[in-house]
Design a protein around this nucleic acid. Structure first.
Lengths: 238, 238
DNA sequence: CATAATTGAGTACGCTGTACCCGGTTTCGT
DNA sequence: ACGAAACCGGGTACAGCGTACTCAATTATG
């Protein structure tokens, strides 16, 4: 159980035969499969056949499935901050843009949101991201701890929002139903709630709420901007 | 695969012999096991032995493991809003209190946060919660859709924050390491990052950042209050 | 050139969720 | 009163999972 740190192990040691595969290939395959079929389609056997290796060979590159997940997250999180991104110096604009790219990345890789939300061990691209985020809010008169609190708050919102945004799609994938069947299943229950009369506000929502209530984009922006506004209002004056 | 809606199926049908067990007992056992040993300790076999039933008997009460999860979430989410909670009429105070109770509940049941964040199908207690939340922000001059956007934003923040708050503890459970071993594993990597000189802000953080950087409570409050402030500032004037 | 280190991969173990049965029990329709 | 229908408890079985262990083949080092 004495697992070594994934990011410390050199890709290529000295003595033995040269490897046929690579972490990069493994990561690429994992991301591809998860994108197409969801995170639960990822298995060591599946990944092995995907790259043409024997199952147990993967363990030469990675100390277990958890490392594969770690590699996937680190690989994809890089997209939050494309190479060559320059900072405008306007912290709200910079952090907002980062948040929006984070969201779009998670929408492209729907398996990412829950993982990103609940893992925060150090990894190359996560550290790159942290470095850039800290630079965005540097010079506002905040201490390092306060900067971390600020950034943490924004990412908390983004992660939480995207997860709930993806919740319905997730439910469809989990159950294997399509949207029509799904709503057909939920409707009678909601109807019974309405009929009971115990939930007037929910009833109002179900009857007069706009279909797919407002643009999702718009809702994301609303929360993000309110949060940034609220932060700005309490920044130390300079 | 034609799964019926969990919440529509009556607990007790008409014809057959009376059941030995119950959804309530199953739910109680599931929550207890997950609290003590984590969500991955939950298996149909384990739950069955826990309540003294045969494995397949559980399927008389529940259409699959996913229903068990649904029952667990619904049961625990009830604690967000204790029976008899009265609203003050101050939406910020009410919604803030709800957010704080939600966080405390998720800390008591660490398996809840990821589930709550990514499931939002209708269920009795979730609907009760939604009803109460809507009542909190009713009368502010917002339409139903705008109320939902507001509430959704706050819960996004809470869910995201608690997940990241629990991330370290989660990592320990996943790996089976204790905190000492874990940091001993992370440290050399962080050291190598610092030594590389490519991440000055991260270095600053690692060297002068307060240990466990500030009270977690304080960080939660900071983000929550900034978000509520920002929302308040843009409410329609009345 | 022997040796130590490393890779590739097969086999096997103990888990998992659940489809499919069957025998017993209770209630309903007649 | 009695067959039928509906339901409960649960055993068996299957496909799939992560990974510990093992061993032959390969390579750089002494």
């Amino acid at each position: 159980m004495a697992r070594e740190n994934l990011w410390m192990r050199p890709e290529r040691p000295a003595r033995g035969p040269q490897p046929n595969y690579s972490r990069a290939a493994l990561t690429e395959a994992a991301v591809r499969v998860a994108d197409a079929e969801g995170l639960e389609a990822i298995s060591m056997r599946r990944l092995a056949t995907e790259i043409g290796a024997g199952t147990m060979s993967l363990y030469r590159y990675v100390s277990g499935k958890d490392d594969v997940i770690e590699l996937m997250v680190d690989a994809v999180v890089a997209q939050y901050l494309p190479e060559g991104t320059v900072l405008s110096g306007d912290w709200k604009a910079d952090l907002g843009a980062l948040a929006r790219r984070a969201r779009l990345t998670m929408l492209r890789h729907p398996w990412l949101a829950p993982l990103a939300a609940s893992r925060q061990g150090a990894s190359p691209n996560r550290l790159r991201l942290l470095e850039a985020s800290l630079r965005m809010v540097d010079g506002l008169g905040l201490g390092v701890d306060e900067m971390l609190t600020l950034i943490g708050g924004v990412f908390a919102y983004v992660n939480g929002f995207v997860q709930s945004e993806l919740a319905e799609a997730e439910a469809l994938r989990r159950t294997g139903l399509d949207l029509r069947e799904w709503t057909a299943l939920q409707k009678p229950y909601l109807m019974s709630i309405i009929a009971s009369g115990d939930h007037p506000m929910v009833t109002k929502m179900a009857t007069e709420g706009g279909r797919a209530y407002g643009d999702v984009e718009e809702r994301f922006e609303y929360g993000l901007e309110r949060l940034l506004d609220g932060i700005e209002a309490r920044l130390p004056e300079r």
